[in-house]
């Protein structure tokens, strides 16, 4: 019996069961039912194929182990690193990170975490192993259930193993910083001036820009940033907050300032983060909310997977007409 099969057997088919990673984001998406039996996904980096830029990794693998293994072949994945989230949250697992699906600083260039998931093997509510996707970079074969599982907080199935897309670590990488002046839409000006920035973070007081890529490109963009008043920084930019909310792309700074919170915005992604428990609520259309409920009812009819968890916890359903 393989590790995955053992995990499926352990999950079983009848009683309420919670999948536990590093417990570093246990406060997300509702309150877990403490009476549910706890299981943990298998661990280990199974395979790294640098020429294919893919990595096969089991869901219980600590994030740090995955990052280290990839660093040895000068590659990386679009999952957060310790500096981005803080060491205590970084103690988590690959499966946990993808169940919550919060990205890191580089979402602007690497995309959200779910975009790097090529294949998922998971355990269904019936305790059976199932697979979605494929281990190649381009695949439109069948319905893409990976998309549903990533970010689902383990409510539709327990993810056991992933094939993730990796990418080369850029030759050059440098953060820059500039103080924000009132009324200046500096993040947008950076986005217009720099062809492909690695990241543009904004806080209430500063804008932070990451240049990554070929050294010649970084050198050219460095000149542009200097012209905009940026200077190099030796230390890391601010960590992202635990809680997320949304803004129209390009208006992250304005929405962050309106919130009155200590925020970090990811310019160009529509994402804002803060450690405050009172971040503005995200909204959802009634039809989308109803589809969320139906999916849960169909994929987990008895509600045994991660009871208490709800990806729509704290979400406001807006009043869009749905007749």
């Amino acid at each position: 019996m393989t590790m995955l099969e053992r995990f499926a057997t352990e999950v079983g088919a009848t009683d309420p069961v919670s999948c536990v990673g590093g417990r570093t984001q246990w406060d997300q998406a509702g309150i877990a039912d403490a009476s549910a039996r706890e299981v943990s996904a298998p661990t280990g980096v199974v395979e790294i194929v640098p020429e294919e830029m893919i990595v096969r990794v089991r869901a219980g693998t600590p994030l740090v182990e995955l990052h280290q293994a990839l660093a040895e072949v000068k590659q990386r994945v679009a999952l957060p690193s310790p500096a981005e989230l803080g060491a205590e949250r970084f103690a988590g697992t690959v499966g946990g990170a993808l169940a919550v699906a919060h990205g890191g600083w580089r979402q602007l260039c690497l995309g959200p975490p779910r975009d790097s998931v090529m294949e998922v093997t998971y355990v269904t509510a019936a305790g059976e192993l199932s697979k979605s996707g494929g281990a190649v970079v381009k695949n439109v074969s069948g319905f893409d259930i990976c998309r549903l599982l990533v970010g689902a907080h383990g409510t539709l199935g327990f993810m056991a193993e992933f094939v993730l897309r990796a990418s080369p670590v850029p030759e050059a990488s440098q953060w820059f910083r500039r103080e924000l002046e009132q009324g200046d839409k500096l993040p947008n000006r950076v986005q217009d001036a720099i062809h492909a920035p690695g990241s543009i973070l904004c806080t209430g007081s500063h804008v932070f820009v990451l240049l990554e890529g070929h050294p010649a490109d970084v050198a050219a963009d460095r000149t542009v940033l200097s012209g905009l008043g940026f200077s190099e920084m030796a230390e890391d930019p601010p960590r992202l907050g635990r809680n997320h909310w949304s803004a129209r792309r390009g208006s992250e700074l304005a929405r962050g300032q309106e919130s009155g919170l200590e925020f970090v915005g990811l310019t160009g992604t529509g994402m804002l983060t803060a450690n405050s428990e009172t971040v503005p609520a995200s909204t959802l259309s009634p039809v989308a909310a109803s589809m969320n409920r139906r999916l849960k009812e169909r994929f987990d009819p008895t509600g045994r997977l991660n009871p208490g968890r709800d990806p729509l916890f704290g979400i406001t359903v807006n009043q869009e007409t749905s007749s």
């Binding site: 998309r147 549903l148 997320h244 792309r249 995200s282 039809v287 989308a288 589809m291 969320n292 007749s323």
Partner: peptide, 29 residues
């Protein structure tokens, strides 16, 4: 427009839509 005739927005132009990635699974379906 869902197969039952309901109409609604999935995904979001504001960051990542909360809940399951309905947009992601509809693309390519």
């Amino acid at each position: 427009v869902l197969p039952d005739g309901q109409v609604g927005m999935i995904g979001s132009v504001e960051g990542d839509a909360p809940g399951y990635d309905l947009r992601g699974v509809v693309v390519g379906s």
